[in-house]
Design a protein around this nucleic acid. Structure first.
Lengths: 214, 214
DNA sequence: GCAAAAGTGTTTGAGGTACACCCATGC
DNA sequence: GCATGGGTGTACCTCAAACACTTTTGC
């Protein structure tokens, strides 16, 4: 069933960069492509926008179809549209960013994807299309925008230690932080509260567990 | 000559929000639409993306065709694509922001536009499509991103008084500033230098003229 | 007892904010 | 001489950065 226009139209896709903190490091959800082009390579989950579907809704749907994830807040990163970025036809993609707490992440490979998996952003495999460039921009955006408050409320699991939180913030900002200054800022932010539980995980003093406040 | 696809494709346009400072106030370039839809209403200049043309290049070309302006730096604001934003067909638009010094602004109406004109952002006419919403986002982005340095180098004319510069910054940030604090910051920034000329324009002490440094 | 991470305050410097008066001009 | 905008400096406060030792545990 063909669709006809009197001037050429590009295809429009949406892609969703899902960030999470795994093992104290910034990570991203990728799917392995099953089909040409770039079959076997890893890619940012996404797909074509329905003709009567908003961009954000398409992003939510595609993420769910390809990874099983239900995105919370989706923030638009921007549009990427170099003429040669897809060998099939002219494709313009609108990229969204989503944040997920690792303990809510249950990845299931969808029909379009052979596999879905978390990768550390500093250990990425070879990526399909211009997805390496897109991910670079996404990480940059994250660095610029995400503050400690945001990390606590959107990336950390239900309970965590202050050192884990600090590692997460450092892996996003890329810079090491002083422990006492970090905790002083947390006090000022009033963003976390102790759960009362502790975590014992080695030959050292147990760590108090915290949760996001409110 | 028809173009056919096996699934429906949206049309993709680019729009360019050109900001300038006019009379000390933040202003934007709009064109009056000549044709349906929204004939007679004012709109952000823009048009369809060529099938082998990058988004930024399309933005530059459309701005030139519709207003005669050659954009300097173009920053992408994002994509807007609600399904019902254009009555002709599904249209997804990618919006760019450009800054222009008023003394370089020579507006010429192009073929697609009955007229091109500067409007103060706080005295906008009724706008076509969802352009009011887009402009709102563009102004917000400008407020978030543009610092004094950027205003000096990209929005001010070749020579200007410090009060004019302060008015410009205030009209972008939306907040009044203390004159002495503003000038102290300018000294710290090392962004302007006196031209040696003065401007006489009323029953008061003449103002020293400055230019952007470097 | 020793290795390993948890936890805890003070000092300093930079930058931002608040604030009031004299100056040069046109009329 | 008066109305109008141009031009100038100080005091305070807030926030970020630097910095070292004690505590609790497993082995």
């Amino acid at each position: 069933m063909p669709y006809t226009y009197d001037h050429p139209h590009p295809a429009v896709t949406v892609d969703v960069v899902v960030f999470a903190i795994s093992d104290g490091r910034l990570a991203v959800v990728l799917i392995r492509r099953a089909q040409w082009p770039h079959a076997g390579k890893w890619a940012i989950p996404g797909g074509f926008v329905g003709i009567d579907e908003s961009l954000k809704r398409a992003a939510w749907r595609e993420l769910r179809e390809e990874t099983g994830l239900k995105a919370g807040h989706l923030e638009q990163l921007g549009a990427f549209g170099r003429p040669d970025r897809d060998p099939r036809e002219r494709v313009i993609t609108v990229v969204y960013i989503s944040l997920a707490a690792v303990d809510r992440l249950r990845l299931e490979a969808g029909s379009d994807a052979a596999d879905a998996k978390l990768f550390f952003v500093d250990e990425l495999p070879e990526l399909a299309f211009d997805h390496a460039r897109i991910l670079g921009h996404a990480v940059e955006r994250l660095r610029d925008r995400l503050d400690t408050q945001g990390v606590v409320q959107r990336l950390m699991p239900q309970s965590f230690t202050l050192t884990e939180l600090q590692r997460a913030c450092e892996s996003i900002s890329g810079a090491p932080t002083d422990k006492r200054n970090f905790r002083k800022k947390l006090r000022a932010l009033d963003a976390v509260e102790p759960t009362g539980e502790v975590r014992r995980d080695g030959p050292h003093r147990p760590a108090q567990l915290y949760r996001a406040k409110r």
